[in-house]
Nucleic acid binder design. Structure first.
Length: 303
DNA sequence: AGCGAGGGCTGTTGGATAAA
DNA sequence: TTTATCCAACAGCCCTCGCT
């Protein structure tokens, strides 16, 4: 067997290029600079006497030679990794470390109490930092930059091979008004719903939400009196005004203003809201991060 | 065997340029 | 506009070689 001239790191670079189809992202994945990855690609081209990847509008396209090599190289690297890198057992009770999670408001509200209680019991040496994010794709940016270990939020708009997701939380909407509201004694009909001023919680400050989309399909519009980014302020506002709001059920049920509110099924059909656990492929096999993800998933299931 | 010098390789940053 | 590539200058590591 003659491996003369073949550097295993070059094969790892090739594997990263096959997966990412982009020199810059492959460089990030390998923990080297972009020029270094470009140089590695140049050495691979010399080694295999083939251009391997060609630039196109869709990114780097593998040549037939690169496609032939991709599977065997990937298999070989996985086998070598399994054989050579004996991963240490992760013992949560013994470690001292900090995890950073990206959480939008709702997952932070729903998950954090249970998560902190579980960490105190199972891993007292682990502390948490939380970074908030507003738009659905900024979680991906934070993961790409390595600023967070995982995120929980609405699924990213575009599927990316380097970003992994799993649905862990669902919730339904309810329409809320204050308990002694004179216009809602007989329930929440569509007519009543449309006659009341509405509060909309929107992280991006939009004045158009899922309710407005559902109403538009019926050819209807509601009166929006207030749009605010603080989702958890909405029940308190509704409890002390004649406004109504349509919010996720847990937001209403766990609000301090819960006793002053009455909850109705929304008079328009609204989809269930889904929140995903989101993480980067590079942390897929990290024992500590895998343990944290499994813990978050099991806690979400038990809610 | 141990040491130091020299050279090659590969990495970095910073900048320029070409191509999609 | 974004991304890939190339270049220059420099740094660190490792191997080879010659010497003791």
């Amino acid at each position: 067997m003659d491996f003369h001239g073949i550097d295993l790191n070059l094969l790892a670079a090739f594997d990263a290029l096959v997966e990412e189809r982009n020199v810059t992202r492959a460089a990030v994945r390998m923990g080297v600079s972009q020029p270094a990855m470009s140089a590695a690609l140049s050495r691979l081209r010399t080694l295999f006497e083939d251009p391997l990847f060609l630039r196109s509008a869709e990114g780097l396209l593998p040549t037939p030679r690169a496609r032939d090599l991709a599977g065997p190289v990937s298999d070989a690297l996985r086998r070598l990794e399994a054989a050579l890198v004996k991963k240490p057992e992760f013992e949560p009770a013994q470690v001292a470390m900090d995890f950073t999670l990206g959480l939008s408001d709702y997952p932070a509200f729903v998950l954090l109490p249970a998560l902190l209680n579980a960490l105190e019991k199972k891993a007292p040496g682990i502390s948490l930092s939380v970074r908030s994010f507003s738009s659905r794709d900024s979680a991906v940016d934070l993961l790409d930059a390595g600023l967070i270990d995982a995120a929980v939020g609405v699924p990213p708009t575009q599927a990316e091979s380097r970003i992994l997701t799993r649905p862990i939380l669902h919730d339904d909407f309810v329409t809320i008004v204050r308990r002694d509201h004179p216009d809602a004694r007989r329930g929440m009909s569509l007519k009543t719903f449309l006659s009341l001023p509405h509060v909309l919680a929107s992280p991006e400050g939009d004045r158009h939400g899922l309710v407005d989309e559902a109403l538009a399909q019926l050819g209807k519009r509601r009166k929006l009196a207030l749009s605010l980014p603080q989702m958890f302020a909405v029940p308190a506002v509704v409890a002390q005004t004649r406004m109504t709001a349509t919010v996720m059920k847990r937001v209403a049920l766990h609000s301090p203003a819960r006793r002053m509110l009455v909850l109705f099924p929304p008079p328009v059909a609204l989809p269930q809201v889904q929140f995903d656990l989101i993480w980067h492929r590079r942390s897929e096999t990290n024992p500590a991060q895998a343990w944290l993800r499994a813990l978050i998933e099991s806690l979400a299931k038990s809610l």
